Amino acid sequence: MSEPIAAVVVRAAELTARGLPQRAVELLRPALAANPLHAEAWCRLAAAHLDAGEPDPALEAAKRALVLPGDQSWAQRLTSLALGELGRHAEALVAARECVRREPGDWRCLVVLAEALAGAGELREAVEVARGATGLAPTEARAHQVLGDAALRVRDWGTAERAYRTALRLDPGADDVRANLATARRKRGGPAPAPVAVHALVQPVLSRLAALLVAGGLVLLLAALPRPTPLLGWFAAALVAGCVAVVARLLVRDGVRRALPPLLRRRPLTAAVAVLFGLAVLVLAGWSVALLLGATTTQPLVLAWLCSLVGGAVVVLRGR
């Protein structure tokens, strides 16, 4: 019985690829009635329903596949897509995260997770996850399209334009991508991104700086007891370089440098955190140089760590 159902699954996949999902559904239904334990056929049926714009039966079929032995990541992807189509974004996100947990190296799982994150309003993480998908599958147009969609929603016009251009080069017939590329180009030539959109990019940078400076400063404080050595100067310099790299990655984004001053004027708390972290980095840099020249004091390190701790506390509390 396994050979006939396998042949049906192959024919259903061909029909779906030709734009005939309803015929694939009609082919799979009777086959599954006779072979209800074939997980791949249930997944193929769910995919056909999704292509036909029928999320309810797609979800039902995907759930049937989930309780059977087989490709669980495919079933989780289909479940997440169906839930997203039904507007159940929180559940879609849970299914997508489970898919990535099972297959962290599968770019398709990352694409589904990026779409679920965007549907749930987690736009910053959606961009990063989609970027990871393009890294795993640089020749897949779908991965670049999802990155462009996520970047478009956070008003990162440059990233969106580059992603859409790549997607079009890989799949020149994608008219929706062409339209979104035109939108990204038009927006990129317009005014700078709004401060709220830039804040969506600044916030994760502040979180990373807080983690680096607080954790790194604590390690340096412990290592400096009872007396710091010149070797610690190199570690402090490496910490400073890491912080500079995090900030530089933000500043190279299109429009960010123009939008940062109005953002800091409108959000004094963000500006205060940026000043604290900047002071911490400057003091750390000076202390590392002093250590390499023979100094043995830890007072600058304590000052830098306290600035980092206060700034980090503000970042955590503001995030909550």
Rank of each mutant, 00 (worst) to 15 (best):
L250K: 03
A295Y: 09
P228Y: 10
P4E: 13
G135W: 02
V289M: 13
E26A: 09
V252E: 15
L213V: 00
A163Y: 12
S80M: 01
E115R: 12
C43Y: 00
P204N: 05
L152K: 04
A39W: 06
A141M: 12
G294V: 10
R267W: 13
E91S: 05
L206C: 14
A118P: 04
L282C: 10
A33L: 07
A47Q: 03
L209W: 04
V240H: 00
R186E: 13
V316D: 08
I5F: 01
H144M: 07
S308I: 06
L231N: 09
R267S: 15
R108T: 15
A313C: 10
V310S: 02
V67N: 08
E3D: 15
P193Y: 03
A52N: 06
L239F: 04
H199N: 10
A39G: 14
V214G: 12
R142V: 06
G87F: 11
M1Q: 14
A211L: 15
E98N: 06
T134H: 00
A12K: 04
E103S: 15
R188M: 15
L222G: 12
C99Y: 03
L201T: 04
E91P: 01
A192I: 03
L83Y: 00
A192G: 08
K63Y: 00
L276N: 08
A133E: 03
R44S: 08
D171W: 06
G189D: 13
L209F: 03
L239N: 11
R44H: 09
A210N: 12
A211T: 15
H49S: 00
A248R: 07
R11T: 11
G255P: 08
E91R: 04
A116D: 06
R77V: 09
L15M: 03
V244H: 07
L220C: 08
A215P: 02
D106Q: 01
Q76W: 06
P36S: 11
L218K: 12
G105Q: 08
A290D: 15
L293W: 13
P230Y: 11
L225S: 14
V281Y: 00
L81Q: 10
M1E: 14
V315K: 04
L78H: 02
G158L: 09
G233R: 06
E140I: 02
L263W: 05
V252T: 11
L78P: 00
